[in-house]
Nucleic acid binder design. Sequence first.
DNA 1: AAATTATGTAACTTGCAAGTTACATAAGGA
DNA 2: TCCTTATGTAACTTGCAAGTTACATAATTT
Lengths: 114, 114
Amino acid sequence: MHEAAASLYDEQDLVMEALGNDVRRAILRLLAEGELPAGRIAERFPISRPAVSKHLRLLSQAQLVSHEADGVRHIYRLNRAGFDRGRVWLDQFWPDALGRFKLLAENTYERGNG
Amino acid sequence: MHEAAASLYDEQDLVMEALGNDVRRAILRLLAEGELPAGRIAERFPISRPAVSKHLRLLSQAQLVSHEADGVRHIYRLNRAGFDRGRVWLDQFWPDALGRFKLLAENTYERGNG
DNA sequence: AAATTATGTAACTTGCAAGTTACATAAGGA
DNA sequence: TCCTTATGTAACTTGCAAGTTACATAATTT
């Protein structure tokens, strides 16, 4: 019957679960600079390529990234859908936006170091 | 430069890490209905009380909950700070969303309502 | 003061997420 | 066609997060 409602929460859970890992968060930050093929992503981490591939699969299932084949390469990029779901999840606790921009304003600048 | 920035991201990581567990997310949903003492929270879960206590500690470190002693009881409630950090983390990926909040902040700045 | 209640913590165990290696597949290039 | 490149997956291992039990502490109650 109402599988739509149930699957919505499942999808939100997939997002929150995926975001709860530092390697996956680092992959997202890397992709924030621009789309990349799977191999290039893996190069940036001290773990094996299959391990990164598995993280990419979880990120993809959570719709935090999307990917498309380009010849033999698979290009990954950020997918807004997952981030929106994460935001919806957070908003169930604090529906009003007020009080957020102070923190936001204080942290929208420099970050580039790594 | 300011180590405030570094520790901020550590704190964001604490939040995202804490939110990446379904028991902890369920605790937050429970506390969204109202504050509760530790024991009452533990009653609602099929795991042991010390296990819940440990989850509460992590949630507290992430500032997703706060707690205060009330006699022998420790009352837990949601803490806005952690949720704000979670949102800041999400918003770093979509600058246009940041712009939206900045605009909102500018328009609401001296009105002081909230 | 002794018993009870509510909680946190220490020490240990364990389940599973995250890692590894080995292999399969598919697209180009020589 | 065979070789190389790029990737995903299967099967197995392992590190650590999340669970357990036992104990310490502190505030009430009798």
